[in-house]
Simulated scan of single mutants.
Amino acid sequence: MITKIEKNMSEKKRIAVILSGCGVFDGAEIHESVFTLWAIENAGAEYEIFAPDVEQHHVINHISGDEMDEKRNVLIESARIARGNIKPLSGFNAADFDALMLPGGFGAAKNLSSFAFDGPESTVNKEVEKAILDINKDGKPIGALCISPVILAKIFGKAKMTIGSDQGTADAIQAMGATHVNTTHGEVVIDENLKIATTPCYMLDAKITQIAEGAENVVKAVFKMLD
């Protein structure tokens, strides 16, 4: 007879991942997103991908950097990375998951929040805020890559985190009440009280191998907090 403890030990951890579109300048950073998914599965866990069903702030031509005269949806664009296996963030239930991951990309600062435009006075998408607060309320860890820690700074205020070493962004984080720690490639900063793990990734001038290292290390840190 299998005991409840043995059953729980045999069940895979389930990690929710929130994306913000598809593409570094107007959505989720693709390398960070894919390596986060890879690291979760490589650690023996399962992931489920979510995104808010909202219009993204704008669309950027990733060759020229120019804004394009068209509209796109964050959920539909995120589905490109998820290979269609994605759900609207409105259906997120923290009770179904053991942890939450937030890859970076400008979408985190343009679509999930308004940090790119409003800095410390920014707002956070209500569904994103609720998902983060619900996970935190349940005592479950959160991992954030690249620029996405600014969302956590806005929501929690007093938190320890990193976005690398960009002084302007670090100053904005501290203006929101958080403590910033300068880091380099692959390093992770952990706030033990809030169970938050952050790493800089493409907030630094990075190679793709360094992005893989950062994603793997932050996922490992999240799993260590689960243990």
Rank of each mutant, 00 (worst) to 15 (best):
L89T: 01
M161L: 15
M1W: 03
G104W: 03
I211A: 07
K126Y: 11
K126Q: 13
N73S: 10
K130A: 14
K12D: 11
S122T: 13
S165W: 01
V24W: 14
G27M: 07
D205H: 14
I196Q: 03
D96F: 06
D171F: 04
L194I: 13
C201M: 14
A79E: 11
T169A: 06
K137M: 10
A94Q: 08
I208W: 08
F156S: 02
A116C: 08
V219T: 10
A45Q: 06
G44M: 05
A175C: 04
L152K: 02
K130D: 08
E32D: 07
F35A: 07
S10V: 09
T209K: 14
D191Y: 09
I5T: 15
K126V: 11
R72T: 05
R80A: 13
M225T: 09
L204K: 02
I211M: 08
P200H: 03
G157Q: 09
K126D: 14
Q210G: 01
G107W: 06
V150G: 06
V17A: 05
G119R: 02
E192R: 13
K224W: 00
T199Y: 04
G143D: 02
G44V: 11
I155A: 02
E187C: 02
D134M: 08
F50K: 00
D26N: 10
D171G: 04
I49F: 01
Y202C: 01
A153L: 02
E129Y: 04
I132S: 00
S122H: 02
N111K: 07
I147M: 02
A131R: 05
K220I: 06
H180W: 10
F92Y: 11
N182P: 03
N93Q: 15
A94K: 08
E6G: 13
K195R: 15
A28R: 01
I155S: 00
D98S: 08
V189D: 03
N125E: 12
N182F: 12
A116M: 14
L19P: 10
K4A: 13
S64A: 09
I147C: 00
F92A: 08
S122W: 01
L204G: 08
A108T: 14
E11H: 09
I18N: 02
